[in-house]
Nucleic acid binder design. Structure first.
Lengths: 125, 125
DNA sequence: TATAAAAATGAAAATAATTCCTATTTTTTA
DNA sequence: TAAAAAATAGGAATTATTTTCATTTTTATA
C-alpha cells in the first residue's frame, strides 16, 4: 500500500473527484495543468491508470470508445445525453441479472456496465 | 438506397453475419482476406462503417475500448467472458428503465448498452 | 455497345489517443 | 547526508482508425 501521494498524483485524483463531469484523460490533464503547468501528459495517464488499479476511481467507456473517469466507484450506471454530452450517474442495479445469467447461461457475472443514451432534462425542455 | 452490393461489401457483410463470434474490424479483415486476398483494410473499415449506418450490422464497444461487430441488430445485450473472451448475446431488456429514467431524471432514453463481465459456462467447468 | 459519369477500391499517409522509454528530479530510507 | 527507490517531463513509439487520392470497377445512357 502506498503511504503518500505525490503532488501530481494528488492533483490528478482531486481533479477526478472534484469535477463530477466524468472527465476524459485529456480533460483531467487540462485541470491539472491549471494548478501545475509543468505537469506532463504521461504522468496524468500513468496516475489515472494507477488510481483505477487501486480502486480509487473508475474508468468507463462510452459507446464511441471514449474513456471517461469517475470518482464514484460504487456500482452504478451512466446515462449520456446525445445532445449536450452530459453524463448522469444512475443507481441502476442489475442484481437480478446475476442469478438469471447463472441459471440461463451458466455465466458467472462478476460486473456489469450499463450505458443509456438519450436526451437529458435540459436538452428536452 | 443502394441497389447492389459490391463484391467486397458483400463479403464483409457476410463475414459479420456468418461468424457469430462478434469479430473486430481486424478479424473481419482476416476473414475477407481468406476469400479475396487483394482486399484492403480501408475497404473493410469503410464498409463496416457503412453497414452500421445502414443498420445492417451493429458496432459495440467493450469495456477495454475494443470495437466488435454484430450481425444481430435486434436490441440485446452482451456478456463477455473474462477468461476466454467469448461474447454471448443475451436478451436483457431494459424497457422498465425507460419509464423510470423519464420519471426520476427527466431523461428521454432512446437506447441502451449493457455489458456484463464474468466467466462463461466453459470457463467455470 | 461504347462511353461518360459515378462509385468503390487499394495503398499509403495522416491522425489521435495512449503507452513506452529514459535521463533527470524528487522522495524515502537508514 | 548519502544511497536507493520512486516519480516525473518530454518525447518517441505504438496502435487502431480515418483520410487521401490515383486507379479500377460499375452503372447509366446515348
Amino acid at each position: 500500500m502506498r503511504k503518500n501521494y505525490s503532488k501530481q498524483r494528488e492533483e490528478i485524483k482531486q481533479a477526478v473527484l472534484e469535477h463530477r463531469t466524468h472527465p476524459t484523460a485529456e480533460e483531467v490533464y487540462g485541470f491539472v495543468k491549471e494548478k501545475d503547468s509543468s505537469a506532463s501528459k504521461s504522468t496524468v495517464y500513468r496516475n489515472l491508470h494507477e488510481l483505477v488499479a487501486e480502486g480509487v476511481i473508475q474508468k468507463v467507456v462510452l459507446p464511441q470508445g471514449i474513456f471517461i473517469f469517475d470518482g464514484d466507484v460504487s456500482e452504478h450506471s451512466h446515462a449520456v445525453c446525445k445532445k449536450c454530452g452530459a453524463i448522469l450517474d444512475i443507481p441502476l442495479a442489475l442484481e437480478k441479472a446475476q442469478q438469471a445469467m447463472a441459471a440461463e447461461y451458466g455465466f458467472q457475472m462478476s460486473s456489469y456496465h450499463v450505458l443509456l443514451e438519450g436526451l437529458c432534462k435540459n436538452c428536452t425542455e
